[in-house]
Amino acid sequence: MQLSLKIALICILIIYLFCILKAVKRKNMRIGYLIFWSITGIILIIALLVPNLVDTISSKLGFEMTINMIFSVAIFIILYLIFHLTILISKEENKNTLLVQEISMLKKRVEELENKEEK
């Protein structure tokens, strides 16, 4: 890999880590997710900095080509992430239903009580 390309990629990754930090600071992301996303960023930086690291790992693991290992690892991580998010959405939907029901019933109670007082 050419040195200029390497430097560019590392710069992008550093900006990426910075963005994660900023998101957490602004409370747009929970700290639990900070760990997941920053670890992926740090692993990518290490892979870029240490020469032949990825190649050695993939040949030790028995992959014929390094790119195969990178793709399979990336796909598995993404699959896990989407699965995790699907569960999270379903849970949030249930909570949302409960909230809508309770709020609506409370509103009705409040209206009834207000009407009683007026009379």
């Binding site: 949302n96 239903t97 809508v100 029901q101 709020i103 609506s104 019933m105 509103k107 009705k108």
Partner: peptide, 24 residues
Amino acid sequence: HHIKLVNNLGIGGAVQTGYKYAYE
């Protein structure tokens, strides 16, 4: 006599509200 749900829940969520009302 009615309860207005603040958001659309679909038939299941709406009917369950009725059961909660009946229970309470």
